[in-house]
Measured scan of single mutants.
Amino acid sequence: HESKLSILMDMFPAISKSKLQVHLLENNNDLDLTIGLLL
């Protein structure tokens, strides 16, 4: 999960990174759901 998140972070600009982190917190680190929201 950690490395997947790092790769994902590299793919998005800074603003999207903050949104990603907020979504991860709100969704209890449900990375798949977060990716779904961003794609």
Rank of each mutant, 00 (worst) to 15 (best):
H1M: 15
H1G: 15
H1R: 15
H1W: 13
H1S: 15
H1T: 15
E2W: 04
E2L: 14
E2A: 08
E2K: 15
S3T: 04
S3M: 11
S3L: 06
S3R: 05
K4H: 14
K4I: 08
K4F: 05
K4E: 12
K4W: 03
K4L: 08
L5V: 12
L5E: 02
L5N: 02
L5H: 00
L5T: 05
L5R: 00
L5Q: 01
L5W: 01
S6G: 10
S6W: 03
S6R: 11
S6C: 15
I7F: 05
I7G: 03
I7L: 11
I7V: 14
L8G: 00
L8E: 00
L8W: 00
L8K: 00
M9A: 11
M9W: 05
M9G: 12
M9I: 14
M9T: 10
D10I: 08
D10Y: 15
D10V: 05
D10E: 13
D10K: 06
D10T: 04
D10C: 08
D10N: 09
M11K: 07
M11P: 02
M11D: 02
M11W: 04
M11H: 05
F12T: 03
F12P: 03
F12E: 01
F12L: 02
F12Q: 01
F12N: 01
P13W: 00
P13R: 00
P13M: 02
P13F: 01
A14K: 14
A14S: 14
A14E: 14
A14Q: 12
A14V: 09
A14T: 07
A14C: 09
I15P: 00
I15W: 11
I15M: 09
I15V: 08
I15G: 02
I15H: 12
S16R: 07
S16M: 04
S16H: 15
S16D: 11
S16P: 13
S16L: 04
S16E: 09
S16T: 06
K17S: 08
K17T: 05
K17R: 10
K17Q: 12
K17A: 07
K17N: 04
S18A: 10
S18C: 14
S18I: 15
S18F: 13
S18K: 11
S18D: 07
S18L: 09
S18E: 13
S18Y: 09
S18Q: 14
K19P: 01
K19M: 09
K19S: 10
K19C: 06
K19W: 06
K19L: 07
L20E: 02
L20K: 01
L20H: 03
L20A: 06
L20Q: 02
Q21T: 08
Q21F: 12
Q21V: 08
Q21E: 11
Q21D: 08
Q21P: 00
Q21L: 06
V22P: 03
V22S: 10
V22I: 13
H23Q: 07
H23L: 07
H23T: 10
H23R: 08
H23P: 02
H23V: 07
H23Y: 07
H23M: 07
H23A: 10
L24E: 01
L24M: 05
L24P: 00
L25P: 00
L25N: 05
L25T: 13
L25D: 06
L25R: 13
L25W: 10
E26T: 08
E26S: 08
E26L: 05
E26V: 05
E26G: 08
N27L: 05
N27A: 07
N27R: 06
N27C: 11
N27V: 04
N28H: 07
N28R: 09
N28C: 05
N28Q: 10
N28M: 11
N28D: 13
N28E: 12
N29A: 09
N29Q: 13
N29T: 04
N29H: 08
N29P: 05
N29K: 04
D30E: 06
D30A: 05
D30Y: 15
L31I: 10
L31H: 02
L31W: 02
L31E: 02
L31G: 00
L31S: 01
D32L: 04
D32S: 07
D32Q: 13
D32R: 09
L33V: 13
L33R: 14
L33P: 12
L33D: 13
T34N: 05
T34D: 01
T34W: 00
T34A: 09
T34E: 00
T34S: 06
I35F: 02
I35E: 07
I35W: 03
I35Q: 08
I35D: 01
I35Y: 06
I35M: 10
I35R: 14
G36D: 13
G36K: 14
G36R: 13
G36P: 10
L37W: 08
L37Q: 12
L37H: 11
L37E: 12
L37S: 13
L38P: 03
L38S: 01
L38V: 05
L38E: 03
L38R: 01
L38M: 10
L39M: 15
L39N: 14
